[in-house]
Design a protein around this nucleic acid. Structure first.
Length: 136
RNA sequence: GCGGAGGGCCGGAUGGCCGCGGCGGCCCGCAAGGGGCGUCGAGGAAAGUCCGGACUCCACAAGACAACGGUGCCGGGUAACGCCCGGCCGGGGUAACCCGAGGGAAAGCGCCACAGAAAACAGACCGCCCCGGCCUUGUGCCAGGGUAAGGGUGAAACGGUGGGGUAAGAGCCCACCGCGGGACGGGUAACCGGACCGGCACGGCAAGCCCCACCGGGAGCAAUGCCAAAUAGGGACCGCACGUGGGGUCAGGUCGGGGAUUUCGGUCCCGGAUACCGCCCGCAGGCACGUUUUGGCCCGGCGGUCCGGGUUGGCAGCUAGAGGCGUGUUGGCAACAGCAUGUCGAGAGGAAUGGUCAUCCAGCCCCGGAUCCUGGUCCGGGGUGGACAGAAUCCGGCUUAUAGGCCCUCCGCGCAC
């Protein structure tokens, strides 16, 4: 089993489990370096997720997004569930509230990401995106 | 009807809206690309990674020896197995049935706690018996000898019960049981039965070491093969140069910056980093540096050709195989095998197989009513609500997790006939 999981701040040569499907105009982060870069940039917490955002400063106006859930979130089923909800909400919200030319990484939290009401989950993401943009 | 045993199966359903991965057409476009359609897309354990294989690479040379590890009643099945089937033996249960690392203790070593006189060349504590001596004649003491029935300990005490026998006893003798050997018979075998013989010898632990037989070379798809990039770095050869410029690192200083403290003169501290989803904080944010210079130490020029490795990315491996499932049939008690026929067929890669909203169905809880009588059954309404768990090269097993439910066979008891 164990697909590459979030390393839990250990040595860390295994990348965390992240989905990669395309999301209607959104591109998906697949490279480890992109995740590292995003992790070093701005971040914003909400009850159901952590959002990292980074202006790539290149000419490409597309929005890219990655998802990640460490083992803290739970077993494989729980992590998949959390990522899928994040993916669904990102597809719905990001092309409206996200900024062109940015990378975003959505990080799942234990329990909350899977349990939170879908409407509230959506509001969390919108709120986080606004905060990140306001700071740019 | 109650209680129990064995086996098999399911693992919520339907629909709307919006999506994802593979494959194959179609439409638009010079192309890059865009749009749309069809089709397939998680489990019984996908899990643990505990066995057995396939497949790769490495090593070795015939399959070797040693070491180490594994297996361990018998027969069969299988590609193989530590798996499965059938049988045997031992133990448990009234029974259906269940459980058992179940070779060797007569190769050797070791261990057998506590208790007990004694725990493995047997031996004799309390006893029992005989003979002798002493005197204070007694249910006495001392010495010698014969015993192991009785007492008591233990998981286990060198056969058991009864009778004969004896000074007391003892397989000393006898019967039965047990034990050892065993002609012969049955069975492929484990093993079973056993005429007869033996007077009893051979305690247990091999899940302590060990012995015997059989099996095993190692690492694993992050294997392995191919391509590209940056051109950073290593080696060889050739040619041209022989420079004080460059890079790294450590220590200190200057100027600005931040912080602490102050008698406002100053003094001290910070000045980090390939930091893999972090931490503080608590829904708001923060964890903050830049410029220049001196000295020490280390590295060492440019171009060309070739070789081997690493990194990153891509492609292959990658899913049709000892294939799964259904039906029929043949052989077999069965596992299983053969034949015929039908049907199914994920391949991701920071990792798709979904998100969301309704309605329904199990289950559970509450309320009202009816009925037998204090718990069920039926009707109506409301609420709640579905376990364990996610393919990662692929198969065969084992083990473990699992809400709730369904089916079949069998056993015991009760009632009725």
């Amino acid at each position: 089993m164990t697909p590459p999981e979030a390393p839990d701040r250990k040595p860390g040569n295994t990348p965390p489990a992240v989905s990669s499907c395309a999301h209607g105009g959104l591109k998906v982060l697949r490279k480890r370096a992109d995740f590292l870069a995003a992790a070093r940039a701005r971040r914003q917490g909400t009850p159901a997720m952590m959002v990292q955002g980074r202006d790539r400063r290149d000419d490409d106006p597309s929005i890219r997004v990655g998802f990640t859930c460490s083992k803290k979130v739970g077993n494989a089923v729980a992590r998949n569930r959390a990522k899928r909800r994040l993916r669904a909400v990102a597809r719905e919200v990001l092309h409206i509230h996200g900024q062109p030319g940015w990378d975003y990484v959505l990080i799942g939290r234990p329990v909350e990401t899977a349990a939170r009401d879908y409407g509230a989950l959506r509001e969390d993401l919108i709120h986080a995106l606004k905060k990140l943009r306001g700071r740019a």
